[in-house]
Simulated assay, not measured.
Amino acid sequence: MTVTSVNEDFDQLELTLAADFDAPVERVWQLWADPRKLERWWGPPSYPATVDEFDLNPGGTVGYHMTGPEGDQPHGWWKVDSVAPPTRLEFTDGFADDHGEPLPDSPRIGMRVSLTRRGTAGSGTRMELSSTFRNEQEMHQMSDMGMAEGMREAAEQMDRLLG
């Protein structure tokens, strides 16, 4: 299995997912850097993502929506803070309205992606995805919505794209 751990730390207001891949860092990075590849795994299987806007540069935005089994389409956005291909990406993630505009009263989650080489001759990759919350209430809200399980299900789809 790809995902090796998912940790919810309410004291530190952080949710961390770790996953190991039998693919080089550069290939795993492409799953983040290519919008067509990103949308093949970003949502859990029951809520596949469609990327509507994609600027993976500092200050850029990524807009997306997911389509649920009942046809509902929740929207989300990223505000890109920093990018260091192929090993690091930091962005803020949040909910958006139907036009892709951030919802002002919804949680905003600081996301940090770190990719490091592992294995023989660095042929594999360890991905750590850390989500930091502004306060305990927002973390509980996202936990109650199943964020940890959704992240696990989404990340587990990455293996087949790397195969």
Rank of each mutant, 00 (worst) to 15 (best):
M1Q: 12
E8C: 04
L15F: 00
D22T: 13
E26N: 10
Q30E: 09
Q30C: 04
W32F: 11
D34Y: 10
P35N: 09
P35C: 12
R40K: 07
R40C: 03
W42R: 01
S46T: 14
T50A: 04
E53I: 05
F54Q: 10
L56V: 00
G60T: 05
G63D: 10
M66G: 03
Q73P: 02
Q73D: 03
W77T: 02
W77D: 05
K79D: 12
A84K: 14
T87D: 13
E90Y: 07
F91T: 08
F91Y: 13
G94K: 06
A96S: 11
P102R: 06
D105V: 14
R108S: 12
R112M: 13
V113Y: 13
T116Y: 02
R117E: 15
R117I: 09
T120L: 11
R126T: 09
R126Q: 09
E128R: 13
S130D: 10
S131V: 02
R134K: 13
E136Q: 15
M139W: 12
M139H: 10
H140D: 14
Q141W: 15
S143A: 15
S143K: 13
G146F: 07
M147A: 11
M151H: 15
R152A: 05
R152Q: 10
E153I: 01
A155E: 03
Q157G: 00
D159L: 04
L161D: 06
L162M: 01
L162V: 00
